[in-house]
Amino acid sequence: MNPRIRKAIIPAAGFGTRMLPATKSVPKELLPIVDRPVLDYIVQEAFSAGIDHVIIVTGRMKSSIEDYFDKNFELDVSLRKSGKTAIADKLCEATPGVGRVSFVRQQEALGLGHAVWTARHLVGDEPFAVLLPDMLMVNDTGCLESMVDVYKEFGGNVLSVEKCAEEDAHKFGIVSLRPSSNGPLINGLIEKPAPGTAPTNLFLSGRYILQPEIFQLLESQEPGAGGEIQLTDSLIKLMAQQEIRPLEFKGRTFDCGSPAGYVAATLHMAMQRPELAAALAQEVELLGNTRGTSRAA
């Protein structure tokens, strides 16, 4: 029987340069999608998949992330004195229990692989998950939950992938596959292949289930693209030792680290709220009519 996936790492130490100037003072992970930070959605995805302990890797100027997942006693008292007990109760229910979220500081911005390695002592010698906080993945069943189901059946390592248009494959980290008796396995990772050379149109979409041996590989990993410790470089070494299986995610994925992806995610999630959907639909229709009039003019 495969060990249960109990812990998840969320690397949240980046500067969020694509979302400047907003991220000059607010961590990109705390930018709100309607009325919840994008990071809150990612943490809840982990908990919904059965994760017991989420480890968030932060950096300088990110202490507000720790504050968000802590209980705010002053706010709680103020709300209750004002008779807003329903809101206070809702906030309490949404606050993770003691010990469910931990934080570790990445002291230097040395890449995704280094951020994952920074959390090694909190993970220990057991398989774990990694969730990128920029990628909001929406479906009836969470992406990580589906990956855990695959892991329970086969063990090993599992990476989430999605299909892109073939002409866009050069923009992503693309996987190549080989057949096996238990379904396809990943046998190659190519970062932004030259146009027309990609072996598939399946790209890595930001969720990983990894065996602890990855930490040893990351510790000795030489800097790669951008002079950083790249997780994909160590994954290439890992696949020579262990099976790495793809899980193709069938829902919607929004890159909330980009302005267009962030706005799209906000609109999508707002439209799922009955109290917001009608007014937003009217605004979108009005905007469409205005743009059509502008083009005609």
Rank of each mutant, 00 (worst) to 15 (best):
R6W: 01
R6D: 09
K7M: 01
I9Y: 10
I9K: 06
I10H: 11
I10V: 13
I10F: 08
P11A: 13
A12Q: 06
A13D: 14
G14P: 05
G14H: 10
G14Y: 08
F15R: 14
G16R: 00
R18S: 13
M19V: 03
M19Q: 15
M19Y: 08
A22K: 13
K24I: 02
K24A: 12
K24R: 11
S25P: 00
S25Q: 09
V26L: 14
P27H: 05
P27I: 03
P27T: 03
L30V: 09
L30Y: 10
L31K: 08
L31M: 13
P32Q: 05
I33C: 08
V34G: 04
P37C: 04
P37H: 03
D40P: 04
D40A: 14
E45F: 09
E45A: 11
A46W: 00
A46S: 04
A46C: 05
S48F: 04
A49I: 00
G50M: 03
G50K: 05
G50P: 07
I51H: 02
I51T: 04
D52C: 05
H53P: 08
H53Y: 11
H53R: 13
V54Q: 03
I55L: 01
I56W: 08
V57W: 03
V57Y: 02
V57H: 02
T58M: 01
G59W: 01
M61H: 12
K62L: 04
K62G: 10
S63N: 11
S63C: 02
S64V: 10
S64H: 13
I65P: 07
I65D: 07
I65M: 03
I65G: 10
E66G: 01
Y68A: 09
Y68K: 11
Y68Q: 09
F69M: 09
F69R: 06
F69L: 08
F69T: 06
D70G: 15
K71V: 06
N72W: 10
F73N: 02
E74Q: 08
E74M: 10
L75N: 13
L75R: 15
V77T: 05
V77F: 12
S78P: 00
L79W: 09
K81F: 06
G83D: 00
G83L: 03
K84D: 01
A86Q: 05
A88N: 03
A88I: 00
K90H: 09
K90M: 10
K90V: 00
K90A: 15
L91A: 03
L91F: 01
C92G: 11
C92A: 08
A94L: 14
T95M: 12
T95F: 11
T95W: 10
T95Q: 14
V98N: 14
G99I: 03
F103K: 06
V104H: 10
V104T: 12
V104P: 15
V104D: 06
R105A: 04
Q106C: 15
Q107V: 15
E108D: 15
E108H: 14
